[in-house]
């Protein structure tokens, strides 16, 4: 699969397991002999602040994705999709989880989930709406929302063909605590993604 790199931005709030998610995906690509670059958010911003991780698979050189060039956006918190939607390329989809996390500041105006989805759709984005935390909870693994969304993303556009389900599962086994439970959640996300895509 040489040629065009696949550009993914994963966004959310510090502590949602975004770095792990990116790490699993990139390791899966590397295990298949491809290149990967993951630019992470560390330090100060992790204290409940906004987080964006850039994942580039294939022949990419620079760590940061240019605005208007991402092939997929995955938001683990819905309002964060608003902040970073400008990274999406024209026609590229977003997977936006229903989770809303209120910033702990006195007197902030929080949009509703419906408002968030509407605003994204009005900007011409195809939005896949997920309930990752609940789905992961069904497997007794509420921390597995990230793996659910990783599976969902694979179904939605295949991460450019640089990985497949088995390479991701292998990476989960190597990188994530409680791997078997997480593999299950990953598969559930994949199945749901396939269904939503039709």
């Amino acid at each position: 699969m040489a040629g065009k790199p696949f550009n993914l931005v994963i966004v959310g709030v510090g502590g949602q397991g975004i770095i792990t998610m990116a790490n699993v995906l990139a390791s899966a690509a590397v295990a298949k002999g491809h290149n990967a670059i993951v630019a992470e958010t560390h330090g100060l911003s992790q204290r409940g602040g906004t987080v964006i991780v850039h994942v580039r698979l294939g022949e990419a050189e620079a760590p940061l994705i240019m605005e208007g060039k991402a092939d997929l956006l995955i938001a683990l918190e819905a309002t964060e999709a608003l902040r970073y939607a400008s990274y999406l390329a024209r026609g590229a989809p977003a997977i936006v989880d229903s989770r809303l996390i209120r910033p702990p500041l006195p007197n902030v105006e929080m949009p509703s989930l419906e408002e968030v989805y509407r605003a994204l759709e009005e900007a011409g984005i195809r939005v896949f709406k997920t309930n990752a935390v609940e789905k992961a909870e069904e497997f007794g693994n509420p921390q597995g929302a990230n793996m659910y969304l990783l599976g969902y993303g694979l179904a939605v556009n295949g991460y450019g063909g640089y990985v497949d389900a088995s390479s991701i599962e292998e990476a989960i086994r190597q990188k994530v605590r409680n791997p078997e439970a997480n593999v299950k959640v990953f598969r559930a996300g994949y199945e749901d993604g396939l269904r939503a895509k039709q």
Binding site: T79, V108, A123
Partner: peptide, 16 residues
């Protein structure tokens, strides 16, 4: 490149 223009603003989310 063209990019989506979303008219609704995300709430501020500084580290706390």
């Amino acid at each position: 490149p063209d990019k989506p223009k979303v008219t609704l603003n995300a709430p501020p989310r500084p580290p706390v």
